[in-house]
Design a protein around this nucleic acid. Structure first.
Lengths: 130, 130
DNA sequence: TGCCATAGTTACCCAAGAGAGAGTATTGAG
DNA sequence: CTCAATACTCTCTCTTGGGTAACTATGGCA
């Protein structure tokens, strides 16, 4: 990591447009609603089984959970461990990469929690203005 | 496996489930592809006009840009300033709230930039296995 | 007189996203 | 012999996201 102390966004940093495209693409993939919620769950509760996740993540369907987990596995964010027993037992846990993403998103969660009120008030004001 | 109860930092620990629902909802809204890209653009270049944004944000259509900007305005993330001249001139700039969101997402951008390679390699490995 | 630019809005349409629910494989328990 | 449990997979359907393109308003300019 080239930046020693503070992480700050430098508008003048020279950015290869191809890299920027890839970054945008990756963010589009990773900043998906279900991915975020699954990530949060795995951060909070560590290793989880499939049905455990489907119970914990509010409103997710089996299909979406499978799909999301497959993508996360492909992207190297989670590890899928199959125990060859009957009934089947499959466990999911975050990789280091997944964990680091969770930390990166931590700021966003904190922001959301801290600014719920402001957003709610902004909406009321906006809707009142017509 | 580290013992679960030993995890000392947990930003989501004592959370009212209703608040958590709202936070998740807000994150779902704010972590939208176009919102993120527009936010990034406004962070980098400050105040922008409509067509300037549509030129800068890669691949966005007029419709999506309008829609995204309206939502961001409603959520209190941007300010829309109309100059009553002909031809029309409308400027968009981030509010303090929008700026703080940009900073919160900064960690994610840094993460994406730093881990592009790892994700790419993980995908190759996964696809080779499958 | 008619054209241009700006910042939209509106209508139409298609494809992707996502939910519901049934089907599948396995085998030990009753 | 049937059932229950797990972790899916498949199909069918509906909703939403998002693209294209045409339309609006206005005053300066040729």
């Amino acid at each position: 990591m080239p930046t020693p102390e503070k992480i700050s966004y430098d508008p003048h940093a020279p950015v290869d447009p191809r890299v920027e495209t890839l970054v945008n693409e990756l963010i589009g993939r990773v900043a998906d609603k279900w991915t975020l919620l699954v990530l949060e769950e795995l951060e909070d509760h560590g290793t989880c089984r499939f049905t455990e996740l489907s119970r914990r993540v509010p409103g997710i369907s089996q299909k979406m959970l499978t799909q999301t987990l497959r993508q996360m596995e492909r992207d190297g964010l989670v590890v899928r461990t199959v125990h060859p027993v009957v009934p089947p037992k499959v466990e999911y846990c975050l990789t280091d990469l997944g964990h680091s993403l969770g930390e990166a998103f931590c700021g966003v969660w904190v922001w959301a929690e801290a600014n719920l009120e402001k957003v709610a008030r902004a909406r009321l004001a906006f809707d009142a203005r017509g």
